[in-house]
């Protein structure tokens, strides 16, 4: 930080220009989306990257394409744009709610889906558990392979520290439309305006008998990184959408989480509230069914 020159910012208009600018800027250069995470680096006592390439003026990264079978979201789409575009679709309700409820309105006008995915070290990101439960795929472009994008399931993307950096740019997030209803339940400490201390996102399919046939459940903010709750997914298979019953199952399985202690909340609390959040999620799905 101290003594380093302030980082330059390139503002390209196309993806190839951006990739070229990123590789030209050299090691450590990074994409800059809404800026709401990167601009707070000084508050976190972190150094800025030596150079940035802004993505906000690249039209193709700002598109949302909703088709019957899949939805493709440009990485530079803001939370506000995402919430608005997805609001009609019940299968994408988890992502729409995550985008509509995160942070505050002005930050939602700036912060992007790509930025949320790439803000490593930010365990309370709202969109990430929603993307996990919706089985999202992340597309990544790099100058070395300008023609073909690399595609990674979001779980693999999160697990791979090398998925970003090194001249790569997350370009799109693609969701298969499963037709399952989805839901996003977050728990801020105040009514709103906080980062949630725990998040449950779920996409659940219910068969003709009113019993769960498929479930994808993701938990955010509880541990250092969001993850799927496969134990609960298996346990509720065949169950009715009974909030109390499923919350009780969640309570029995919650010890598999090791909550992160933070200044805002202790680890035990994040785990302790999970059954309540699962119950709320199931209640919301049952009400919508």
């Amino acid at each position: 930080m101290q003594g380093l020159a302030p980082p330059p910012v390139a503002v390209p208009r196309t993806l190839p220009e951006a990739l070229a600018a990123l590789s030209a800027a050299g090691d450590g250069a990074a994409p800059l989306a809404g800026g709401t995470w990167i601009m707070r680096a000084p508050i976190r006592h972190e150094a800025h990257a030596p150079a940035y390439v802004a993505l906000g003026r690249i039209a193709e990264l700002r598109r949302i394409d909703v088709a019957d079978d899949e939805v493709a979201i440009g990485a530079a789409v803001t939370h506000a744009e995402l919430a608005k575009a997805l609001s009609p679709f019940s299968d994408l309700a988890a992502l729409a709610a995550a985008a509509a409820g995160s942070a505050n309105p002005a930050v939602r006008n700036a912060a992007t889906i790509g930025g949320n995915l790439c803000a490593r070290g930010f365990p309370a990101a709202d969109l990430v558990p929603a993307l996990l439960c919706l089985d999202a795929v992340v597309e990544i472009a790099e100058a070395a392979a300008p023609a073909g994008s690399r595609r990674l399931p979001v779980e693999a993307f999160l697990a791979d520290p090398a998925a970003t950096g090194g001249g790569r740019i997350v370009t799109r997030i693609v969701l298969k439309r499963s037709g399952l209803r989805s839901v996003h339940v977050r728990l801020p400490l105040r009514k709103a305006g906080d980062y949630p201390v725990a998040i449950v996102s779920a996409a659940i399919g219910v068969g003709g008998g009113g019993r769960v046939e498929s479930a994808r459940i993701a938990v955010g903010s509880v541990e250092a990184a969001p993850r799927r709750w496969t134990g609960l997914e298996g346990a509720i298979n065949g169950e009715r959408l009974d909030p109390a019953r499923i919350a009780a199952l969640a309570a029995s399985l919650a010890p598999e989480f090791s909550g992160r202690d933070g200044v805002e909340a202790p680890g035990w609390y994040r785990v302790r509230v999970l059954p309540t959040l699962v119950g709320r999620a199931i209640a919301a799905l049952a009400a919508a069914a």
């Binding site: 009514k191 200044v263 805002e264």
Partner: peptide, 16 residues
Amino acid sequence: IRQASFETYRLPLAGD
């Protein structure tokens, strides 16, 4: 002081 910013020092908001 552990709560060194508005992120962790929670002032009441309008909704509270």
